[in-house]
Design a protein around this nucleic acid. Structure first.
Lengths: 255, 255
DNA sequence: GCAAAAGTGTTCGCTATACACCCATGA
DNA sequence: TCATGGGTGTATAGCGAACACTTTTGC
């Protein structure tokens, strides 16, 4: 019997009933926008990393906990974006199947078989800092290209992902929080690729560069990059202090 | 003993536990952005109209129900904007006080005294179609100027209102749903006043007019207005068919 | 006629867009 | 030396901000 799943049998008293949290964890790697999915142990089903709210936790704290247990990351961009509460959005049959696949027999009136409301959070993490293949809590995590998600996604998690992506696009238009998706240093081309992938839209190299540099939050590093048969690009990093001003206050336009 | 309040004693089985809905109902009248508050019976406390989610209802349906019972309006703009879930956001003392003021003694373990998560919805309604002073369900409703809210607002409802306003401002920037706040016909000046009040920002008359007419969703009516010592303004109405295109699809910029 | 408010026209400047040109590098 | 990709310069168009001018009405 699988430890993580067996825990569900006992924790009803410690958590807020009928409410769960699902996290859409975004990362960016090699020109792809990725979402961290988990494979529910011993099944072919994929879904979002989620969890419950402990009695003493705020919603944000609970989401941070889920993120931390899953990725080891503590302080990154995390934002609530929507609540999903259709009466039949969580099929008790699916829950039953997942639990039974892990040797856990749910009592008929168990809270996992009742109706749930799920609060959606999305997180922006630095792909290079995460090790998704470690078997965290007996559920393997996989980075999936958002343009090529697996077919077998449980419950309404596919819809949650789409809504999270939509919220991410909106956010990109008037908040400047994309730096949490990038590694420490990066080329202008990589940054442009991030925007193009999220917004599914092409930009002109020259104008993108001017716009980004015009924001005044990028530091150009002297270091260059020995790579291909062409001019070496500069590396850039974010000027945290200046960037946070944008992140908190100002509205801006997409490039 | 007050009927509405007494109902709370019995309805625990019919509703989703630990989750409530609070509605921020916006209206616009005489240059003021208004919020519909209720006075909790026999107290000096004000708060948002709220309610619970019946077992068979979706979240949106539950919110529509609250709106309908409170205003008699069935199909208007209604949108979820945030979830409030601090562990101590609902003070059980306050609930106890409100109930006792209405002659209802809550049992010690009653669900109203436990922790709640509240889903915030905001609605845009046509002020002229609502009769707020009717004593709906024994709680009087009052339209309050959002720039001059009463001091005694219960729980975290003040914060919910501010967050709803913030969401409304955001929405105004890239969705075109403000027509639900306006009466059938209106002058350009009134429309400008709506924008200025919501965004707390002045616009130039000439440019505002051009921008609005440029959207192509306003029909100018021949009727004019006998009022003051000045040129009579045109009346306008929304071209619903064209407007809905904007409301659903396109991003636009504020004027 | 004058004040007040509505409607329309015009200029100025910014910036998004598109494209052109030069630079650095490895095959 | 040529192909490839990076960096910078420049011309154009469109739109928003600002302001000026005209129109209508009651006093």
């Amino acid at each position: 019997m699988n430890g993580r799943y067996a825990d569900f049998l006992y924790q009803e008293q410690e958590i807020l009933p009928a409410v769960s949290i699902d996290c859409v964890i975004f990362g960016f790697h090699e020109g792809q926008l990725k979402v961290l999915l988990v494979n529910f142990g011993n099944t072919q089903l994929y879904g979002l990393p989620g969890g419950f709210i402990k009695n003493h936790e705020s919603l944000d704290q609970a989401a941070q906990q889920i993120l931390y247990r899953r990725t080891g990351i503590a302080n990154t961009y995390l934002e609530q974006f929507y609540v999903f509460g259709e009466p039949n959005r969580v099929y008790s049959d699916t829950h039953k199947f997942i639990m039974e696949s892990n040797g856990v027999e749910l009592p008929p009136e168990h809270f996992l078989l009742r109706r749930f409301v799920s609060i959606g959070y999305y997180a922006l993490v630095d792909f290079t800092k995460i090790h998704p293949n470690s078997q965290i809590e007996n559920e393997a995590g996989y980075w999936c290209d958002i343009y090529d998600l697996p077919k077998a996604i449980a419950f309404d998690h596919e819809r949650i992902i789409q809504k999270a992506w939509e919220s991410l696009r909106m956010m990109l238009d008037h908040k400047l929080a994309f730096f949490d998706l990038m590694p420490e240093t990066f080329t202008m081309n990589e940054l442009q690729s991030l925007f193009e992938t999220i917004l599914n839209k092409k930009f002109l190299r020259a104008n993108f560069q001017r716009k980004m540099l015009g924001l005044g939050i990028l530091q150009r590093l002297d270091k260059k990059w020995g790579g291909g048969a062409h001019k070496a690009p500069y590396l850039y990093k974010f000027d945290e202090a200046k960037a946070r001003v944008y992140a908190n206050s100002t509205t801006w336009e997409q490039p």
